[in-house]
């Protein structure tokens, strides 16, 4: 039944986007998580990845959240000599999280999530119309 496949594929999309939202919220929550010891590394921004997967039971190409990678870019350096994580020169490593990037990412995830919901609604409605033939 192709409609069931459509529903399952869209559901996999919902799942993947929800996972992406989780990673984004981790990044935003940890936007100021510095290290504890002098010169220690701060929280590193995480990047969700997606990959296409063949669901053998369904015979459909579904999407799955791949490995969550870390952003290797440099930390923000802030001059705060009194901070417990300040190095010898008084600089503290702040996470390489850019709130603006996270916000755009979040909107993108939200949009994709809604698109998947739309597909589910459409497929369900089509299924209902098929069943309605029985009432003819």
């Amino acid at each position: 039944m192709d409609f069931i496949k459509s529903l399952a594929t869209a559901a996999s999309g919902l799942h993947a986007q929800a996972g992406r939202m989780r990673v984004i919220s981790e990044n935003i929550a940890n936007a100021d998580s510095t290290g504890q010891t002098p010169g220690a590394a701060a929280y590193r921004r995480k990047i969700p990845t997606f990959r296409t997967e063949v669901d053998r039971v369904l015979g459909a190409d579904v999407v799955a959240l791949g490995r969550v990678r870390t952003d290797p870019s440099n930390f923000r350096k802030v001059y705060e000599p009194g901070h417990p994580a300040a190095d010898a020169n008084g600089y503290v490593n702040y996470p390489n999280v850019n709130p603006l990037v996270e916000m755009t990412d979040m909107r993108d995830a939200q949009r994709s999530y809604e698109a998947n919901l739309n597909v589910i609604t459409a497929a369900r409605r089509m299924l209902e119309r098929t069943v309605a033939i029985l009432n003819a």
Binding site: K5, S6, A10
Partner: peptide
Amino acid sequence: RQQLLAQNVANSDTP
């Protein structure tokens, strides 16, 4: 077609 469109939307962020 609905199945293929669902696949496209689900993979809208897959590289």
